[in-house]
Write a protein that binds this DNA or RNA. Structure first.
Lengths: 204, 204
DNA sequence: CCAACCGGCTAATGGCTATTAGCCATGAGA
DNA sequence: TCTCATGGCTAATAGCCATTAGCCGGTTGG
């Protein structure tokens, strides 16, 4: 019945999943984002890839695992982008700019993942690992701002408040960004970098 | 069985609800915040006020109505605080400061309402009214920033980005604030006011 | 004193859901 | 050609849940 077209390298870049399991994960992501985890049924996910609910179990092991893998992958990608952006940069201003740009880029490019990741932590049966990764990520920003203050380059009353502000405004991007809007991802990242430097009192 | 202690004026201020219906709404708010709307059962809400699920229907008309009233009340309060804060203030800098302070005060004082309001819009069967109120609220900030730019007092590349940033960082307060922490509500409001003025390029 | 209401309760009702069991067609490899 | 893994399917399992129906003890206004 199904004509299993062989997978070509370009497909992933074009948004077409390589195999059925990947298609299922993508459909789950979209549905979790649009309706929420609990409101999404296995039948919904199945319908989105053209099969019935129970048939999903031939490819993935369950709904909760789908969510858990999604959220772990999200945090891994975010942390990887952060590390790569900041790697080898020692100047604290430049380092903050790059960290914020990576943060915003992530939330614009992976808006559904970010959206689900932020809303559905409570739906995770074992949120510990995800929460730990998130703490690590947040701490990186706070410590960077503290360093900038210690070096006399930044001026903030509270590094904690400044880091929360910067992180929260970047996460907000996932709520409204869409391709083809007023700004490209790069423009957005740059402008949020500016705003972040203003927040820490260093807008040179 | 139940000893209906007469209600005294101080009770509301102490967090004790005036009547059973109010107690139910408060329990629902807490549970919706902690577990999510869909994960919260009528039995849960009943247990939180010491009765069984079906008995709730003697006081409220249903789960969905509980959520809808909650979210409408949330937006009404937020808009009322905003209006009261900026009423009669014409100077654009001062007006922005007061608007931001009201915004942050709301998200610190009513963190559960804000939390639920932001997460459960998708659970509302008729979100139109809430979304309209939210748009109105956002527009107020954007137009205020545009005015500041037009007057040459603020300097931002995009009033839209600046307003989103300010709103998002204020909303983030609802995610971590708790009484007895490092900052009081007033301190928080003031500091976020400063950060907002920095964002719009006016940190006088 | 008593009738009616209030506000509990338990027992349906009607529906939905994740997951498992077991069946079957297809197609590929031996 | 035969076998068997693959990946569909439907039916069954084992719940859970919002809401309604109907019962009943206590309180209270007349």
């Amino acid at each position: 019945m199904k004509v299993e077209r062989p997978h070509r390298p370009g497909d992933v870049a074009a948004g077409l999943p390589a195999d059925r399991a990947a298609a299922i994960r993508l459909a789950a992501l979209r549905l979790f984002a649009a309706q929420g985890y609990r409101a999404t049924t296995m039948a919904d996910i199945g319908a989105a890839v053209g099969i019935r609910g129970p048939s999903l179990y031939k490819h993935v092991s369950g709904k909760q695992v789908l969510l858990a893998e999604l959220m772990l992958g999200t945090m891994d990608t975010l942390l990887a982008m952060h590390t790569e952006a900041v790697d080898g940069v020692t100047d604290v201003t430049e380092r903050l700019r790059r960290a914020v740009e990576a943060h915003v880029r992530y939330h614009a490019r992976h808006r559904l993942e970010a959206f689900v990741g932020n809303r559905e932590i409570g739906s995770l049966e074992q949120p510990g690992r995800v929460l730990r990764l998130r703490s690590t990520y947040e701490r990186g920003f706070r410590e960077l701002i503290e360093r900038g203050v210690a070096e006399g380059v930044f001026a903030v009353r509270s590094a904690r408040l400044a880091s929360y502000s910067i992180l929260d405004m970047g996460m907000g991007v996932a709520n409204w960004f869409h391709d083809g809007g007023e700004f490209s991802v790069d423009q957005l990242a740059y402008q949020y970098g500016d705003l972040a430097l203003r927040i820490v009192g260093r807008d040179g």
